[in-house]
Design a protein around this nucleic acid. Structure first.
Length: 952
RNA sequence: GCCUGGGUGGUGGAACUGGUAGACACGCAGGACUUAAAAUCCUGUGCCCGUCAAAGGCGUGCGGGUUCGAUUCCCGCCCCAGGUACCA
């Protein structure tokens, strides 16, 4: 029979499902291998051809690893909480769970038809209560933990309480809020329960913090920075204001150093690691106190006698001629003298008018204002004026910088603009036209470090500052604690209720805290999140919760209010790879045995857009779980590959514009459009083939084109082409369903790989797909006669046949090891071309070919495997053929002969001889003599088995 | 600006440690089969100069360098993509 891909693919997909062919075992003598894809958000649009790219690569890898004798875990699931379903719910009233369910069904159908070897018995959905129960459980562990810097790990909050009870706050070295109290054991015990809880919240790894957020009253929600454009919401264009809110936060900063160090231990793409390094933003420097000339009162009426700055160049401290603080700095008003008040107020007003974006974009204009106050430079007693300027950010470091115009370009511009002194501090510094941040040379104008070099100077200054009590060495991180709450409906409820204004965990036995039903998916009239609409949704402790807090009092009214915000999108995806290890477990997020067996993800494939979100948060939660001894590895993803983006390839038709400037119903072919006045219109790429428009389909595409007329070139309508984002509105979305329908899953799989290197972004273009389809047919034909009857020979293979086979065995092994799937596809084509030329139909060759090709084109291979007489379903675990180099040994090589580096001819020479012998043989050749023109060569280079170069 | 990746035929791309640049595939051209078309098969196809050809010249973003030999290594520059941003 001819290659009937439709029947074959349906048959084997059903077979795999019915026989659970790819079910992974948590107990095996085989070595484990865990291949993970970044799970998708099930959007309403379904999959487009860009999605499966990574899935196909990981599936090939998984199937290959099975052939190589590994116990492979290759699961799939859905990150099913998210905004689009909620947005749809707001518009239509449809419950997001229903939309999500329908979308998942579409995804599943589309995934199934591509023939992935997922173990579906382990499917997870982050929006399923049996899953988010454990997301909530992990949140509770974070709430019950603090970071002990001395032990350099997270520990139970109970241990902190014990320490407070016996030693007070002395000896605690924790990552915490800045405003922790100092107290003795007795003072701690004397505190009220509420006071204790308030204090403990400053240590918990998840905690409430007042944060400034982009609040959009019209949408009733908080927006991310990139959802805000010029002070308005990107969607809808509603005004956005800065609002302070109590928000749940995650103390990810506690892990900053470990997150940074861990990068050196994992096999990830360098650009991705670099992004994380920049995000963490470690800088090594010092904190320095500059005493105020006269003390001031802070807004909280505390006496303030100094301003503290963070600097990475403490060695330049003798060059300080200005101290600049952020306009939002809390001491601005206190520091402003009456004479300067008008200036300062005007500047602050001007700063406020500028949007955050403007302020960041405009790095050229220098602006600022003088407060009228001064600080004293601790190293030389110099009087330094205090200015405000918007290039200093309130949110980084202390919101104040020491200005060193000679060494820092921004300070330099600032000083020039406002006529402040610029003091050179290094002998070789050149500060004629700009700052010179050099660390080379010897210090001048620098008191006790004069004559020193950088390293010594830095150490000396810090030592001196420490002696004076005016500074110390300090490491700063750019990374902030992560906000962990959204004022949204479709997310995990936070397992917290409030009593006397303090957050308390519900008890573990009450998990999962189910997302309640609401009448509308909008904020309440009073601006509470949607969960505020849930009727009667109050916490009523059923039994007395065993853990903190001890609840003894009677309930007031209906119960305690739950936390009304939900968890952010990244909550569920920060631990999901562990759930796959033991997806049905009701007693733990995964059993200790399962975690001990699978340990970590060996290969993770996904897009680089998750570099600083998902991939950083996942590493953070993993390290936390490791500290609690719940998991075994410090890093969750050993190796990571980024797949490139598939861009869309848009096609255009050119509508003729008539003399009055109106569009007509006539369309001009691409090559002729220069001769007419036309306007380009996107045309659905699915009715265009190789840039030739299908005229009938075009007429049927939209009613207004039914009577379209065409000006053709060579009898064809040629479309224009542009590469853009793949998007519905450009009509360039290619759905894998259409490809699978027309060519089959095996062709789709191989073509997506054939397109180019996995990591590279590329436009989707079906121009070459015929070649892949033809290849599969050609492969099928090797097993059949011209009349499509099965025809396999049991004869011994020839040397040439064995050579073809072993070439491909080795090639595919090498390619898969370096994730170069596109070159494998080419090599398969070469092998099949060779075997076709050899008219090879021998079982000894074809059977191994089937195994090698099966990870790429599993359906056709399963069918052929059975036609060869093997038991159905055994192919997936067949042993990968062993490469034998003997079959590739050559005894002759057609040497390219170069004269002065230019290849002129080929000469076949035995590989048994080398060096001088080869040289003599070549020089004796008549054709070579011709090039030598009677002269003796200056030099002859012979590289055995490679090349011969003659220098004349 | 900084960080990272990349620039090879009409197109997607190959060339793994410096050793025949353009594998494989698409497209295109010509041919076979066919009443015709589709499908299939065969041949050719980097560019320039040659009547097919032979022979020659030029060719991996640009300019230099190292080398017997450079897409590959070094220096300088241009362009494209992604990330990031007044981070003290």
């Amino acid at each position: 029979m001819d290659y009937q891909f439709k029947d074959i693919e349906k048959k084997w997909q059903a077979f795999w499902a019915a026989n659970q062919t790819f079910k992974a075992d948590n107990n095996s003598s085989k070595p484990k291998y865990y291949v993970l894809d970044m799970f998708p958000y099930p959007s309403g649009a379904g999959l487009h051809v860009g999605h499966p790219l990574g899935y196909i690569a990981s599936d090939i890898f998984s199937r290959y690893k099975r052939l190589k004798g590994f116990n492979v875990l290759h699961p799939m699931g859905y990150d099913s909480f998210g905004l689009p379903a909620e947005q749809y719910a707001i518009q239509t009233g449809q419950h997001p769970a229903i939309t999500t369910e329908a979308n998942i069904a579409t995804y599943r159908r589309q995934l199934d038809q591509i023939g992935f070897s997922f173990d579906w018995s382990r499917e997870v959905r982050t929006s399923d209560p049996s899953y988010y129960k454990w997301t909530q459980w992990i949140f509770m562990q974070l709430f019950n933990s603090w970071y002990n810097k001395t032990a350099d790990k997270a520990q139970s909050i109970d241990e902190l309480v014990k320490h407070f009870e016996s030693n007070g706050s002395a000896g605690i070295n924790a990552v915490s809020d800045d405003d922790t109290l100092s107290f003795s054991a007795a003072e701690w015990k004397a505190m009220s329960f509420e006071a204790q809880q308030t204090e403990l919240l400053k240590y918990r790894l998840t905690y409430l913090r007042e944060s400034t957020v982009n609040w959009c009253p019209a949408l009733g929600t908080v927006l991310a920075n990139d959802e805000v454009k010029d002070g308005f919401s990107e969607r809808g264009g509603y005004p956005v204001e800065q609002k302070k809110m109590m928000q749940w936060s995650m103390r990810i900063t506690a892990y900053a150093e470990r997150l940074l160090q861990g990068l050196d231990t994992i096999d990830w793409p360098e650009p991705l690691k670099e992004m994380q390094r920049n995000w963490i933003g470690k800088s090594v420097g010092a904190m320095v106190k500059f005493s105020l000339e006269s003390q001031v009162l802070s807004p909280e009426s505390k006496t303030v006698s100094y301003i503290e700055v963070f600097t990475t160049r403490v060695d330049t401290i003798f060059g300080v001629t200005v101290l600049v603080i952020a306009p939002e700095h809390e001491l601005v008003q206190a520091l402003t003298t009456p004479e300067q008040k008008a200036d300062i107020d005007a500047y602050i007003a001007q700063t406020k008018k500028k949007s955050e974006l403007d302020r960041m974009a405009d790095t050229k204009t220098v602006s600022g204002a003088f407060t009228g106050s001064y600080v004293i430079n601790p190293v030389n007693g110099g009087r330094v004026p205090i200015w405000i300027a918007d290039y200093v950010l309130a949110g980084y470091g202390t919101g104040a910088v020491m200005g060193v115009p000679s060494g820092d370009q921004r300070d330099y511009l600032f000083a020039k603009h406002f006529n402040l002194p610029i003091i050179p501090i290094i002998d070789i510094q050149n500060i004629e036209t700009e700052a010179d941040p050099t660390k080379e040379g010897k210090y001048i104008n620098s008191g006790f470090i004069n004559g020193m070099e950088y390293k010594q100077a830095t150490q000396t200054v810090i030592a001196e500052l420490e002696k004076m009590g005016m500074g110390y060495a300090k490491i700063n991180y750019r990374m902030r604690d992560a906000i962990f709450g959204r004022q949204r409906y479709w997310g995990e409820p936070v397992p917290v209720y409030f009593k006397n204004g303090l957050p308390h965990l519900i008890s573990e036995s009450e998990l999962p805290l189910i997302l309640p039903e609401v009448d509308k998916y909008l904020p309440t009239e009073t601006g509470e999140p949607p969960l505020g609409r849930a009727e009667g949704w109050m916490y009523k402790p059923a039994a007395a919760p065993s853990k903190s807090p001890p609840v003894g009092e009677t309930l007031e009214g209906a119960g305690y209010a739950y936390e009304l915000s939900t968890m952010p999108g990244w909550a569920g995806s920060s631990w999901y790879w562990y759930r796959y290890m033991d997806a049905q477990n009701n007693d733990a997020f995964a059993s200790a045995d399962a975690i001990k067996y699978w340990k970590d993800v060996d290969l993770y494939i996904g897009g680089s857009e998750h570099a600083t979100g998902h991939l950083l948060y996942s590493r953070f939660w993993n390290k936390f779980l490791k500290d609690l001894n719940l998991v075994v590895e410090e890093e969750p993803f050993k190796k990571l590959i980024n797949q490139g983006m598939i861009q869309g390839r848009s096609n255009f038709v050119y509508r003729l514009i008539d003399a009055e400037g109106r569009g007509t119903n006539t369309f001009v072919s691409y090559g002729l459009k220069g001769q007419y006045n036309t306007s380009a219109i996107h045309v659905d790429v699915n009715i265009v083939e190789n840039d030739i428009l299908n005229l009938d389909k075009f007429k049927a595409w939209r009613p207004e084109f039914a009577d379209a007329e065409f000006i053709l070139e060579g009898g064809k309508y040629v479309c224009g082409v542009e590469v853009e984002k793949m998007s519905k509105r450009y009509y360039n979305v290619v759905n894998p369903d259409d490809i699978a329908e027309r060519y089959g899953a095996d062709t789709l799989r191989m073509y997506e790989m054939f397109l180019g290197p996995l990591e590279q972004s590329k436009p989707w273009n079906t121009n070459g797909i015929e070649g892949v389809f033809k290849f599969l047919r050609k492969f099928w034909r090797l097993f059949h006669t011209d009349a499509w009857e099965l025809n396999i020979s049991n004869a011994e293979p020839t040397k040439a046949e064995l050579k073809s086979l072993h070439k491909i065995i080795r090639k595919v092994e090498e390619d898969i090891d370096r994730f170069s799937f596109n070159t494998s596809v080419s090599s398969f084509m070469i092998a099949v071309n060779e075997l076709t030329d050899l008219k090879c139909n021998k079982r000894a060759i074809l059977q191994d070919m089937v195994i090698i090709l099966s990870p790429y084109a599993p359906h056709i291979c399963e069918e052929l495997w059975v036609l060869l007489g093997n038991a159905a379903g055994t192919l997936s675990y067949a042993p990968y053929p062993k490469f034998n180099p003997e079959y590739l040994v050559e005894n002759e090589f057609a040497y390219p002969i170069s004269i002065n580096g230019k290849t002129r001819m080929n000469l076949s020479i035995s590989l048994a001889i080398e060096g001088k012998e080869v040289e003599d043989l070549v020089l004796a050749n008549v054709d070579v003599q011709k090039y030598l023109d009677g002269k003796a060569p200056k030099k002859v280079i012979v590289v055995k088995g490679r090349i011969i170069n003659i220098v004349v």
